[in-house]
């Protein structure tokens, strides 16, 4: 009974913290963009525009008001889901994000699946003798995939499989000769639902290289997590007890050690999402994948302050939500956790 009350309290506190963190991030981004050197007006009109035009635009964008008033407007708009307009083409920022988010999510989910399969397979080396050959291979795999610069790995993959062998397209998300499927914006799902095999094949061919590269890069995190936890579990008392009862080693690993070693992997998945976004930023740019990170890179090079601000706030919000969800899930699933 008391654990249940503790659990409710923990989950409540974690959920209550999320909006505070979001508010902190939003305020930080707002403040940084305002105090930083460089005037957005300069970026839009150039430094030699007439003063009248500059003042008019400044007023139109509300940049002539005191910082505190601007901050009030910003928070007020944010709460209602209004992220302002892109400075370069006046599209609402929320619309830009809505259009590019499915592409990123599609890439991210597939990459995460590939990372989990590769990483968990490599992590099984945790059952090997410590300091042995298999252990060395597992550790080197973890360090090696971590040490690969994401964009370089992507370029090498492009060179081999797209430029050299010609098996896959170099970049983009969809064959330019076909009409992209309408609907949710998740091309794989949309073309499956429409039953259009040509569209499905086209989007798959474009997805393979970026998703595999990102998956490979992230798999090291899963490898490390499973390997260390598996080893810890195999040294534990309950495994020793199981062994001494004469249970076969196969059963010991699969039925006793593995379930306990897999639970921390869930926590790792939550952490991975943050690195996923960092990696995705570079992978999307390298493969010209029209996701949210690709838009961010565009917004940065065009010095579109509003778009940068909107994308950063939304991405940060996603990360905070995922991390809170994972914390709550782990607390619900793992009865050993005390708060």
């Amino acid at each position: 009974m008391s654990r249940r009350r503790e659990l409710v309290r923990y989950v409540g506190a974690r959920l209550a913290l999320a909006p505070i963190m979001l508010w902190l991030i939003a305020s930080l981004v707002f403040l940084l963009l305002r105090v930083a050197p460089g005037d957005p007006i300069d970026a839009l009109l150039g430094t030699r525009a007439p003063e009248a035009a500059r003042a008019a635009l400044r007023q139109q964008l509300g940049l002539d008001q005191p910082l505190l008033v601007q901050y009030g407007h910003f928070l007020n708009d944010l709460v209602r889901g209004n992220l302002g307009e892109s400075l370069t083409n006046q599209t609402p920022v929320a619309e830009v994000i809505r259009q590019s988010l499915p592409a990123s999510l599609e890439l991210g989910v597939v990459a995460l699946l590939i990372a989990a399969v590769l990483g968990l397979a490599a992590g099984f080396s945790g059952i090997a003798r410590p300091e042995g050959k298999l252990d060395l291979a597992g550790r080197l795999y973890g360090i090696g995939t971590y040490a690969l610069p994401p964009f370089w790995a992507a370029m090498v993959v492009q060179l081999i499989f797209a430029v050299g062998l010609g098996w896959f397209p170099v970049g983009g998300r969809f064959p330019p000769t076909l009409m992209p499927p309408g609907g949710t914006g998740f091309y794989l799902l949309d073309s499956l639902l429409a039953g259009n095999s040509q569209q499905l094949l086209g989007s798959l061919r474009h997805l393979v290289l970026p998703a595999a590269t990102l998956g490979l890069l992230l798999s090291g995190i899963f490898d490390n997590a499973l390997r260390l936890n598996l080893r810890r579990a195999l040294r534990s008392d309950y495994v020793e007890a199981a062994r001494s009862r004469g249970i076969g080693e196969r059963q010991v690993v699969l039925r006793h050690a593995l379930p306990n070693a897999l639970l921390p992997v869930l926590t790792i998945t939550g952490i991975t999402v943050a690195s996923l976004i960092g990696g995705a930023l570079l992978i999307e740019v390298t493969f010209s994948w029209p996701g949210i990170a690709f838009r961010l890179q565009e917004a940065i090079s065009q010095r579109d302050y509003n778009l940068v601000q909107g994308i950063v706030v939304v991405v940060a919000a996603l990360v905070v939500l995922v991390s809170v969800t994972v914390d709550v899930l782990v607390a619900l699933l793992d009865p050993r956790i005390r708060f």
Partner: peptide
């Protein structure tokens, strides 16, 4: 809060602002 943010995103924003 800073720690939760994706590392690259944080430094990208700062580098963007600082030049």
């Amino acid at each position: 809060t800073l720690y939760t943010l994706p590392v690259l995103l944080l430094s990208v924003v700062l580098a963007f602002l600082l030049g």
